[in-house]
């Protein structure tokens, strides 16, 4: 872990992630299997446990899930590796998104563009429900603290829908309840 990598390997990592960026439709997580193939199977820079740890850490820390990518880079080659991985995965997709959103904003009222956002909206809502369901599943599947976790999920939903409380306070409550063994 954190061995320094020759510059040639570092630029190799950067270029590989640059290509993956354009394939990461639906988020960076969709390219995780491909990253695993490259970093673990092909190059042997990381082992399975290190790869899984990177994803778990990024989930546990605040911020976008894409941050598992710089953690992978960090495990491979320290801070330089983190920078190469993050810039690689973000640069192409970001430039493309900027171009597309500007193009779309100018043609907002064209039927093609209106149909695009209208047709995708139900899919987006379905995906958010699916995400909520998949995130709740491990709590429903674990019998020992199922009730505590479900109560916490339900309480969060009620507070979110009925008040304008900032989410960080709900997170603090969840962490406290969890640290005391309630979940």
């Amino acid at each position: 872990m954190m061995s320094s990598l020759p510059l040639a390997d570092l630029s190799d990592l950067f270029l590989r992630f640059l290509m993956l960026s354009l394939l990461s439709i639906g988020g960076a997580m969709s390219t995780a299997p491909e990253m695993h193939r490259f970093l673990v199977a092909e190059r042997g820079w990381l082992d399975d446990a290190e790869f899984t740890t990177a994803i778990a850490l990024a989930q546990a820390a605040p911020g976008p899930n894409v941050l598992f990518v710089p953690v992978l880079g960090f495990q491979v080659a320290g801070v330089l590796g983190a920078a190469a991985a993050l810039l690689g995965i973000l640069l192409p997709s970001t430039l493309l998104s900027l171009g597309v959103s500007r193009w779309g904003a100018q043609r907002r009222d064209a039927p093609v563009v209106r149909a695009f956002t209208a047709g995708l909206a139900p899919v987006s809502v379905g995906l958010v429900f699916a995400t909520g369901w998949l995130l709740s599943l491990p709590f429903i599947a674990a019998p020992d603290h199922r009730l505590g976790a479900l109560a916490l999920i339900a309480a969060t939903m009620v507070v979110t829908l009925k008040t304008r409380l900032a989410p960080i306070w709900m997170i603090v409550v969840g962490a406290t309840v969890g640290a005391l063994g309630g979940v």
């Binding site: 909520g132 995130l135 979110t160």
Partner: peptide
């Protein structure tokens, strides 16, 4: 785990 449960509630 507690934070994970809250995250699930926020998304739902």
């Amino acid at each position: 785990r507690g934070m994970g449960a809250v995250a699930a509630g926020l998304i739902l």
